[in-house]
Design a protein around this nucleic acid. Structure first.
Length: 828
RNA sequence: GCCCGGGUGGCGGAACGGUAGACGCAAUCGACUUAAAAUCGAUGGCCUGACGGCAUAUGUGGGUUCGACUCCCACCCCGGGCACCA
């Protein structure tokens, strides 16, 4: 007998050649007889090509590929494409350092990603490959921008924006972390007043919130998006400054506490603050305070722990519910970006207002008492933010439950014209302009005569010019490309200058999944027919770190494009799976820690099948997993044993086709192995449907263990069936070795085979081990016939020797029978 | 502070309210080998030479139940998200 040695290198390269030559994973957009019900769009988030793929990529694509394969085997046509999020800062920073054009370094990275994805055997439709930095792609990114611009959803305004002094560019709110640092480089972010481009995502806040109910996403991701959108119901209430005759609306979620408002606070950025004190004794002090406040970093300003500061404006406003004059202040704890930039302060029932009132000696008036008694009304209990009964609110409202009063007070304000119900969101408009080179140019021309003019569609793409110096100097490096900047106005033909900012790369990645459906279309971003064939994505897969940014922006794009008639669906990703991180020795992998595991070295040592199986076997894929080289060896041993036993068996049986001479009429070990095989078929199918890849692989391991144990005890045909089934079931995880085994045993191609079917009658057994409990404790096990009734089972249990020992002299007070499982006798 | 996850052997992890620890790793012993590696087999709390038996056990404390890793209440620890959003 020839010696059989598992050689992953030979097996993997051979099958990869087959798939590449035959373009096995390509799908067309043509409807086939099955119609679009038989389609599945399986998509992993596209990688940012920097250096080489890391273990996180391996996990993501191994996971997605398993789902893609499983869907194909269930008879669906599967769209499983790949592309690259190729614009971005790392390539540009590299260019600043070395002078290498970002296009060149990006191309090198992409080549490396392509090589590795192929070496992993991921079943990608390479005919649809794209990269966001190609003019043929960003032409349509620009087109989408102009669609939004014409619809009033893209606009330019001067605003206080987050500026990263290191990257020399502005950042979206979402790109600044909790400490007020740049998400990318970690530098403290500053605030600058600049004219910038924004997308009106806030118009979609309500729909972005409500439609979360329609999609099958992890609860934590939905929660994160809900928190980020931050919807609050309340009221807008007008406070009038009688001296100057100006109305100041405020937003509050607690109009029920209006009678407790004892002062009024404006944000330092509020445009009226200086006007209110102009020419008064307060002017100087206020001006100084505002200056100091505006120079604070996000980090300082955002710290809720720091003592409250502020200064009086020397003016008052009128509380609309009781006519009281309450003093006005400016304080940095009030934010300009939320609500109206001014608040009514209710120190008795708000912690921040309470802290401010205490620091400044301002009156604190309780207007809500906890239900259950007024003895609790001592000052030590304030601020009180819970519910209760109104007090000090005038005859009309006193004694009312605050939740009821809330509506009544708003209704009253409304009739008086002093306020109305209102909703506020934390979500801000999306700032998309970047003063950087390596991004899609914003397709706008600034003409002195015509103003802001969109570049006509037929002149797209506005191509990125080559430049000498990538160094950011507070303006876009593109501004130095004089020839490119100076142009003519598309409307009047006069002298004009191009917009020199580029777009945030999240714009590029907010629609790439649409382009995959029709990637070579050069007359439109997509053909609506193509989208109808594939969209929405049936299963999206990626890291939870994109829970807010990418996943919110992509949803926004779809809603906006649907409103403009370009799409006929609202949500891009019907189902989402977020994978956990891969760590080494319990820590995130990083160069500085020196604990990086490179997929290339693993694949070289043990093969892609082992690497892919291991990363899915190590634990539930949505949880973090710690990389263990010893664990990899274990999986490698498993695949070796499987392949060797299959090769030996095939040597005896030959590739004897996909029909197996096995039947439930078999006996003894043959029947046992047949049953085990059907058990595995049932188990793996169920596990795949719930993303329990670790237990699915474990089930095939169990099957192989039985095969090994019974290798000399069963007929060749039984063994051939068991091993071919094992290969068939494991194929989504270890495609090369399983294709090889399946071909050796059957002569057929496993990826063309239907997913195996578990026979109902082989999942049942005619006898089982009945668990016998006394007082809930396991005391014995006996064989019971499958069809045995409750009485029969009780008798069996009582006869079990060790049960008798525990029944000795005691009275049975209750008997629980779970047919097929156990009998529990309760004794006293 | 608020909102999510998660605490199970030496380790990663299994377990519709029903045999806790599947599967894998590590360890120990044995077979094969001149030897090692690889491979194959066995073992895994305590008592017993063994047959067998016994108890303990899923972060802590209560509760529901014939029966709880699983459900309920309170608490502790770890990870993540949000956080002066009125």
């Amino acid at each position: 007998m020839a010696e059989h040695v598992y050689d992953p290198y030979e097996i993997e390269s051979r099958w990869q050649r087959v798939w590449a030559q035959e373009r096995t994973w390509e799908v067309s957009n043509e409807h086939d007889a099955r119609g679009s019900d038989g389609n599945a769009y399986v998509l992993e988030m596209l990688p940012y090509p920097s250096g080489e793929p890391h273990i996180g990529h391996l996990k993501c694509y191994a996971l997605g590929d398993a789902i893609a394969h499983f869907n194909r085997r269930l008879g669906r046509r599967v769209l499983h494409p790949m592309g690259y999020d190729a614009f971005g800062l790392p390539a540009e920073n590299h260019a600043i350092k070395t002078g290498e054009h970002p296009r060149d370094s990006t191309a090198a990275s992409i080549a490396s990603f392509q090589r590795q994805f192929r070496s992993w055997g991921i079943s990608i439709d390479w005919s649809r490959e794209l990269a966001t930095h190609e003019p043929s792609y960003y032409r349509w990114t620009q087109w989408i921008f102009l669609q939004l611009f014409r619809a009033g959803l893209a606009y330019r305004k001067e605003a206080a924006v987050k500026w990263c002094p290191h990257d020399q560019t502005v950042l979206a709110n979402e790109q600044v972390d909790a400490d007020g640092r740049c998400e990318r480089c970690g530098h403290l972010v500053e605030v600058r007043q600049l004219e910038q481009w924004f997308l009106r995502i806030t118009d979609f806040a309500e729909r972005l919130l409500n439609d979360l109910d329609e999609i099958d996403w992890p609860a934590n991701v939905k929660t994160m998006q809900r928190n980020w959108i931050g919807r609050s119901e309340g009221a807008e209430v007008t406070f009038r400054c009688d001296e100057l005759g100006i109305d100041y609306p405020v937003f509050t979620t607690r109009p029920d506490t209006l009678f407790g408002a004892t002062f009024f606070v404006m944000a330092p950025e509020h445009p009226d603050v200086l006007r209110l004190v102009e020419g008064t004794e307060h002017e100087h002090e206020v001006q100084e305070y505002v200056n100091t406040a505006l120079n604070e970093t996000n980090e300082e300003r955002g710290n809720a722990e720091k003592p409250k500061t502020g200064v009086a404006l020397g003016r008052t406003v009128t509380n609309p519910v009781n006519g009281e004059q309450i003093p006005m202040f400016v304080a940095d704890y009030v934010l300009m970006e939320y609500g109206t930039g001014a608040i009514m302060a209710v120190p008795a029932h708000d912690e921040r207002d309470h802290a401010f009132a205490t620091a400044f000696g301002l009156p604190i008036r309780r207007v809500i008492e906890p239900a259950g008694g007024s003895d609790a009304a001592d000052a030590g209990e304030l601020p009180y933010t819970g519910d209760g009964v109104l007090v000090n609110c005038g005859q009309e409202f006193d004694g009312m439950a605050n939740r009821d009063a809330l509506g009544e007070i708003v209704a009253w304000l409304d009739t008086e014209g002093k306020g109305h119900a209102s909703v506020n969101y934390k979500l801000r408009d999306w700032l998309i302009s970047r003063q950087r080179y390596w991004g899609a140019p914003i397709p706008i021309v600034n003409c002195e005569r015509c103003g802001t003019v969109p570049v006509p569609d037929e002149q797209l793409p506005v191509e990125l010019p080559d430049i000498e110096d990538y160094t950011p100097k507070g303006r876009s490096p593109l501004a130095a490309a004089e020839q490119w900047v100076n142009t003519t106005c598309p409307e009047c033909g006069g002298q004009a200058r191009r917009e020199t900012d580029t777009m945030d790369t999240f714009v590029d990645s907010s629609w790439y999944f649409l382009r995959y459906c029709d990637p070579h279309n050069d007359s439109a971003a997509w053909d609506p027919e193509a989208l109808r064939e594939w969209m929405p994505v049936d299963q999206y897969i990626g890291g939870v770190e994109h829970a807010i940014l990418h996943l919110m922006y992509a949803r926004f794009f779809c809603k906006a494009l649907a409103d403009l008639g370009h799409l006929d669906f609202q949500e891009p990703f019907a189902a989402l799976f977020t994978q956990g991180m891969v760590t080494k020795d319990g820590a995130k992998m990083s160069k500085s820690r020196g604990n990086v595991v490179s997929p290339a070295s693993i694949v070289e040592r043990v093969g892609a099948d082992t690497a892919r199986c291991y990363i899915l076997f190590v634990g539930p894929p949505d949880q973090d997993a710690d990389w263990s080289d010893a664990g990899v060896e274990g999986v490698h041993r498993f695949l070796s044993r499987l392949w060797r036993l299959a090769a030996e068996t095939a040597e005896r049986t030959g590739a004897a086709g996909e029909q197996f001479d096995v039947s439930p009429a078999m006996e003894g070990e043959d029947l046992a192995l047949l049953r085990k095989t059907h058990w595995a078929i049932d188990k793996v199918g169920g596990d795949l449907r719930r993303f329990a890849f670790n237990t699915a692989i474990a089930a095939v391991m169990e099957l192989l263990n039985d095969c090994s144990r019974l290798r000399d005890a069963v007929e060749d045909e039984t063994m051939r069936f068991a091993l071919a089934s094992a290969a068939s079931l494991l194929f989504p995880f270890a495609p090369h070795v399983c294709a090889d085994i399946y071909e050796r045993l059957t002569g057929a191609r496993v990826w063309e085979a239907d997913w195996p079917h578990a026979e109902e009658e082989l999942l049942e057994t005619d006898a089982y081990e009945l668990v016998c409990q006394v007082n809930g404790k396991l005391r014995d096990r006996v064989q019971a016939a499958a069809g045995a009734g409750p009485d029969e089972l009780k008798e069996l249990c009582k006869l079990a020797p060790n049960v008798q020992a525990h029944l000795d002299g005691k009275e049975i007070v209750k008997e629980i029978v779970v047919p097929g499982k156990l009998v529990n006798l309760v004794v006293r």
